[in-house]
Design a protein around this nucleic acid. Structure first.
Length: 200
DNA sequence: GCATTAACATGCC
DNA sequence: GGCATGTTAATGC
């Protein structure tokens, strides 16, 4: 269900209380997912400065969202300078995240992007890096294959094909739609990342 | 409707 | 030609 979309006028910022939201843009050919939002996080923040939506936010599972009026939010920021700093930090992280994503799309193969995407999504969903020395993560990644494809900028079929490869090679376990990360270190090696350099 | 698979097409080394 | 990836169609859940 759409929460907001480009072309409309923003009147506030949003906070996700429950559920899962994707931030995405419709290109001329397909949809591109910028990032996912998990409960406790704000989204639509950029509109504070740009005054327009450059992207869409859509709930991908049952979600509850609260909206903070723009004027209210700005007056809160005025009262708490540290909050402004926090806001800039978050926005800066979003820029870094997106820039890294551009590099990945430009330089990495589907296999590399999928490994990276799974680690990144895990990180977003559970607010922590998958423990690299654990045998298997008990926390599932549950997304449609299409959303995964649009997140790592490839086709649904390539996602399925490559997930199947990673499964057969013992990197992940697939149960229905759920994906469990098994060989974290291996996935990091495929993705070409390490814990220190990973941003999210 | 979504996931999966296979067959085929295309572009790149 | 071989490889990676995308497209299309068929099939199953």
């Amino acid at each position: 269900m759409s929460i907001f979309c480009s072309g409309t006028m923003p009147s506030g910022i949003y906070c996700l209380n429950k559920g899962k939201v994707k931030i995405h843009i419709y290109g001329s050919i397909k949809e591109h997912i910028i990032r996912f939002v998990m409960p406790g996080h704000l989204f639509g923040l950029g509109t504070i400065f740009t005054n327009h939506f450059y992207c869409c936010a859509t709930a991908i599972e049952d979600s509850t969202v609260c909206k903070i009026n723009k004027e209210d939010f700005l007056s809160i920021l005025n009262g708490y300078p540290n909050l402004s700093l926090e806001l800039m930090t978050v926005l800066g992280q979003h820029v870094e995240y997106s820039n890294n994503k551009i590099i990945s799309i430009a330089e990495k193969s589907v296999r590399e992007r999928l490994a990276e995407g799974l680690l990144s999504v895990y990180n977003t969903f559970y607010d922590e890096f998958p423990v690299s020395n654990a045998d298997i993560s008990d926390k599932a990644i549950t997304l449609s294959r299409e959303d995964i494809a649009n997140f790592i900028n490839t086709s649904t079929e390539s996602v399925i094909r490559t997930l199947s490869e990673l499964k057969n090679e013992g990197y992940i376990i697939i149960k229905g739609r759920s994906i469990f990360l098994k060989n974290i270190k291996g996935l990091m090696k495929i993705a070409g990342i390490n814990v220190e350099s990973m941003t999210y």
